Computed example of a mutant assay.
Amino acid sequence: MLKTIAVAATFSAVAGAGFVGHGELTAQTQTETRTQNVVATKTVRHGHLDSFTGTRKIRVNGYSVNVSCSGRTAPREPVVMLMAGAGDGLDTMAGLQSTLSKEDRVCSYDRLGEGQSDQPKGPQTIRDSGKILTGVLDRIAGDRPVVLAAHSLGGLIAGRYAPDHQDRVKGLVLMDATLPALKASILKVIPETATGIAAEVRAQAISVNEGQNPERLVAPDAEVRSAGNIPVQIIKHEAEFGDIPDYGPALEQAWSEGQQQWRALSKRSVLSTAAGSGHYIHVDRPDLAVKAIREVTCQAAAARW
């Protein structure tokens, strides 16, 4: 059953207890997050921007949203926003944030329905989730450029958000992002007549994609749109579906094809495979995640905007 949850998580971004290493990361990063929380919150001004270090709740569109920020504050330089997958709070990004913030300003947040943020009042669309992200970025980045570094469902949201906010999003890193046409990919690979674990994966992935997830987010299939001529790095897992009888190789192929589709975000998109990694790339290969985010951030900083 754990493998079923883990595989469904890969396709639909539901956090699963079956991921190797995820539990260890959570234990470590919860400690780091608690440490950040007790750091005295220091507020400084950059125009109309409130900049702080630590974790605090901010009000966005009538909701309480949990936000964590760390690292140096430098006007006009990119702010990195980390976005976790569904079922995950910002604590799962704490280790990555701690490393990145040694050189850059880095923030993360709990989307509605996740972590310590409020529950949504009803079903959410991608646009609804984007409005919350915009409100958070208004507070923590002001008019500075932003690099979105996102995992799983966070990657789907980031990939849909960037094309509509090209004035703000100047770089993207997608870590095993949920497929842009998830439902079609599942139906193509696993037929309705499937049984056992394959049938469970099919049912779970489709139902979650239709709003049965912690965020109540409905994310229908859609084509990938251009986000402009920005640096984009797409990192996919090496292996995740080998234990699914009859359908493992086809699922891996569908996942690879879906990651290829994300390249349409930019002519500067680069797709790579994280050797030795499962779905949680920032856990299994944090070195690759850090390298990709720093490269994109440097490229975004060097660009004229």
Score class of each variant (00 low, 15 high):
Val7Ile: 11
Thr10Lys: 04
Thr10Arg: 02
Ala13Val: 02
Gly18Arg: 08
Gly23Asp: 00
Gly23Cys: 09
Gly23Trp: 04
Thr29Tyr: 02
Glu32Phe: 05
Tyr63Asp: 07
Val79Asn: 09
Val80Leu: 08
Ala86Arg: 08
Ala86Asn: 13
Asp88Trp: 06
Asp88Arg: 10
Leu90Cys: 01
Asp91Glu: 11
Gly95His: 01
Leu100Pro: 04
Arg111Asp: 04
Leu112Ser: 08
Gly115Val: 02
Asp118Gln: 11
Gln119Met: 14
Gly135Tyr: 02
Leu137Met: 11
Arg139Leu: 10
Gly142Pro: 12
Asp143Thr: 11
Arg144Asp: 15
His151Arg: 14
Gly159Asp: 14
Tyr161Val: 08
Ala162Tyr: 07
Pro163Ser: 13
Asp167Phe: 13
Asp167Arg: 02
Gly171Cys: 03
Leu172Cys: 03
Met175His: 00
Asp176Gly: 13
Ala177Gly: 05
Thr178Tyr: 01
Ser185Trp: 06
Ser185His: 05
Glu192Thr: 15
Thr193Gln: 06
Ala198Cys: 09
Ala199Ile: 04
Ser207Cys: 01
Pro214Ser: 11
Pro214Tyr: 10
Arg216Gly: 12
Ala222Asp: 12
Val224Pro: 00
Gly228Cys: 11
Val232Ala: 09
Glu238Arg: 05
Gly242Leu: 08
Trp262Glu: 06
Ala264Trp: 01
Ser266Cys: 08
Arg268Glu: 11
Ala274Ile: 05
Ile281Ser: 03
Val290Met: 02
Lys291Ile: 02
Cys298Gly: 07
Gln299His: 10
Ala301Asp: 12
